[in-house]
Design a protein around this nucleic acid. Sequence first.
DNA 1: CTGGTTGCAAACGATTTGCACCCGC
DNA 2: GCGGGTGCAAATCGTTTGCAACCAG
Lengths: 151, 151
Amino acid sequence: MDKKNQNDEALIQQKKFIDYLTNNDLKLTKARSEVFEIVAKMDNHFGAEDILQSSKNSVSRATLYRTLNELVESQVIRKTAFGDKHQHFEFVLEKKPHHHAFCLNCKTNIEFPDFGEEEIYNKILEKMGFEIYGHEMHFYGLCKNCTKEKI
Amino acid sequence: MDKKNQNDEALIQQKKFIDYLTNNDLKLTKARSEVFEIVAKMDNHFGAEDILQSSKNSVSRATLYRTLNELVESQVIRKTAFGDKHQHFEFVLEKKPHHHAFCLNCKTNIEFPDFGEEEIYNKILEKMGFEIYGHEMHFYGLCKNCTKEKI
DNA sequence: CTGGTTGCAAACGATTTGCACCCGC
DNA sequence: GCGGGTGCAAATCGTTTGCAACCAG
């Protein structure tokens, strides 16, 4: 993806967020802009703490969490899940589509790019010496009812 | 999978757990047996609260959580990944391999069986009227180093 | 102006831990 | 009997919420 496309992406995300705010009578405040800016700069996934770090506490925890939930509602980001405790987020429109290989023993989470085909992963992981016990796929999108509602 | 195989599975799980206990100088106590029994009866996935319900509080929360962690360490179960707050667990050797389709809008988590091929899911979900935005695969197993260590 | 927004601090829910007593081995 | 196991209650962690002051439209 070249610079231009990345920029387009960012604008789409921004539009989604602003539309959401408008549709829900929410204001585009300094705090919300700040959180959005920081989030937009993040890579694949991040947690609340990452944002807080980058913001150098210019936004309070309370507001940060509130804004993150708004970003989820506006479908700019989504909650993702790992084996650990705190929430992680990823972009609904992934910057770098990728998957995960989690070691049950040392708890490492290996991230690797998407190649579009399932079989290839087995080979890749095998080549990496990763012994696969199993895998699960998490699809996300809109279910039948919600697709209809979308207008 | 027939009755006999299911029983074999259960025994394998049990052996794994007992081996783990032995190797770590842990005792096979009443509480641990009880938790193991209940967990073994669970379907695909479950949370701490599910176990507590089934046990009718014969095991304390503290012990339950301690035992669940032991079951994770012994690789009988693993922490799984959902978008919500509390931990879920699944079996390392899945009883019914399956995947998930999560609706970003209504937060429904649709569970569907594993068919071994990736392309087929797109068709299935499409037929269900589910509009896929993306997906992530979570592989789990042992990484190179840990495979070696396994002896 | 005015209603949504913020930060603070307190509340929360799930999970973890310190401790004194209990029980497998 | 000893060393780990248990329940209890208190502590912790990430996240959420009530409230009074604050600011965007």
